[in-house]
Every structure is written in structure tokens, then in C-alpha cells.
Simulated scan of single mutants.
Amino acid sequence: MNSQASINWQSLLGGFIIALIVLIGFNSFVIVNPGQAGVLSILGKARDGALLEGLHFKPPFVSTVDIYDVTVQKFEVPAQSSTKDLQDLSASFAINFRLDPVQVVDIRRKQGTLQNIVSKIIAPQTQESFKIAAAKRTVEQAITQRSELKQDFDNALGERLEKYGIIVLDTSVVDLTFSPEFARAVEEKQIAEQRAQRAVYIAQEAEQQAQADINRAKGKAEAQRLLAETLKAQGGALVLQKEAIESWREGGAQMPRVLVISGDSKSNVPFLFNISDVQQ
């Protein structure tokens, strides 16, 4: 009986020891996957040296490993500022960034979680960087020089976040708005410019019409001068008679039955009438 109990007790002890070994084994190693970095803390104190991807040993029961995602993260952050001409300007930026794997230990010690990084580091620094970029130009320049505004913002934000172990990969301006007062001023300016352009167009059109009238007058005068010279020349009477007959035809009237030419050799214009008119 005692022998049977002793065997059972030894079996239980053996099973407990095996289970303890397995438990210690599971708690002695950690796997860091690709795109991650780990921070080892022993008794609540972060140890130097980030745990990069792979299998790592850690003291069982007294240590923990905080895993950070070091792939590209994207957050949209709003920002407000005043321009050089003291106009209110609001924007929303989409920021693509990642954590520096080598600096995750400092990030763990100073910022903690990713949510803290966004709310306590990225959002305030975005605000300050936008103020720096907006203060360099007027609100109109901020709209017309949007790419330059973004470049100044990128430079300021990159320099500010780099010291926190945050690498800015890209930013984009999701929205850029200005005060209602400036919006009305822009609209009024556009209307004034359209009216001015319309006035210039009307003036140019009038000038072209006047020049066309001048050209037509000059052409008519030149034609009359040439006609006068032709009439003065030998054979001019025939030309004049031909013109009279063609004018009659172009008027749509019936040619007269009688054509009388004065016996005076100096008279060049034919005298035309209908014989029916004479009979009356």
C-alpha cells in the first residue's frame, strides 16, 4: 500500500517538474516577428538594446517584452496657424512615419505606447511645424504656393521628430481652408478681374472695328481714285457706260426698250428711259 502511494507521489512530482520546465521554457524565450522590435524589461526596468526580429532569451517570470510595430504608420493630424498677413489658416495633414527600431528603447522609456507617441509628440510637433511654414507667406501665397508650403512643413517636421526616434516618410495636405472673410475677398477679386478682362476685350473689339472701318474707307477712296483715273483716260466713256448698264441690271429692273446717247461727243453717260413712259 505504501509502495503504491509512493509511486503515485513520485508520478505527481515528476509531472509537476515537467510542467514547470515547460512553463519556464515558454517564459524564457520571445519571438520578434519581421516589422517589429522589442524592448526587454526586467523587474520593470527597460534594458538597453532593442530586440530585433528573431528568437530572444528573457529571464522567466521577472521580465516582460514590449513589442513595437516599426512598419509604416499613418495618422491624420489637424493644424491651425496664422499667416504672414495675420489671416487664419487651417489644414489637415496625413503623415506617414515609422519608428526607428534602434531607438525603441528610448521611445519606451520616454513616450511609452504608440498612442502616446501620436498624441504627445506627433500632433504637437505637427502644429508647430505648420506654424513655421505658414508664417513665411501670406494666405494668398499659401494657396498659390502650396507645394512650397508643404516642403517647408516637411523640413520642419522631419527635424523635430527625428530626435524622438520617429522617421517621417511622407506627408500630404488633405485639406487647406481659410477664413470666410478671405474667401469673400477672393471671390470679389475674381469678379473684379473678370470684369476688367471683359472691359479690355470690349476695348480691343472696338479698336479692331474702328480699324476695319478705316481700312474700308481707305479701300473705297482708293477704288474711287482709280475709277476717276480710268474715266479720264482714253476709253473712259465706255467704262462709264458699262458701269451704268451693270448697275441697272443689278438693281433687278427690266432693261429699257430705248437707249439714247447724246449726240454731244463729250457726254459720256447714256440717257436711259422706257418708250412707254415717253408715249404717256
Rank of each mutant, 00 (worst) to 15 (best):
A79R: 01
R47V: 14
V70T: 02
V72L: 05
Q73K: 10
Q36S: 13
Q80S: 13
S81L: 00
A79E: 01
A50C: 13
V65G: 11
A50K: 02
S81D: 01
K58F: 09
N33S: 14
N33C: 10
K45V: 12
Y68F: 12
P59N: 12
Q36H: 15
G44V: 09
S41Y: 12
Q80K: 15
P78R: 01
K84Y: 13
G44C: 12
S28C: 07
K74C: 04
A37W: 04
F75P: 04
E53Y: 10
K74W: 00
S28Q: 05
V65M: 06
Q80T: 15
I42M: 08
G38F: 10
T64F: 09
D48S: 14
K58S: 03
F75R: 09
Y68K: 05
I67C: 01
V32H: 05
T83V: 02
V39A: 10
F57V: 10
G49P: 07
L43M: 11
T71C: 02
A46I: 13
I67D: 00
S82L: 15
V77H: 00
G44I: 08
L43V: 06
V32P: 03
D66G: 02
V32F: 12
L52T: 05
V62P: 02
H56P: 02
I31W: 11
T71N: 05
S28K: 14
S28L: 04
T83P: 00
F61E: 04
I42A: 12
L55V: 11
A46W: 09
F61Y: 03
A79K: 01
P59K: 15
V32I: 15
D69C: 06
R47N: 14
V39S: 03
Y68S: 02
S28W: 14
S81N: 00
Y68L: 00
H56I: 02
S82Q: 08
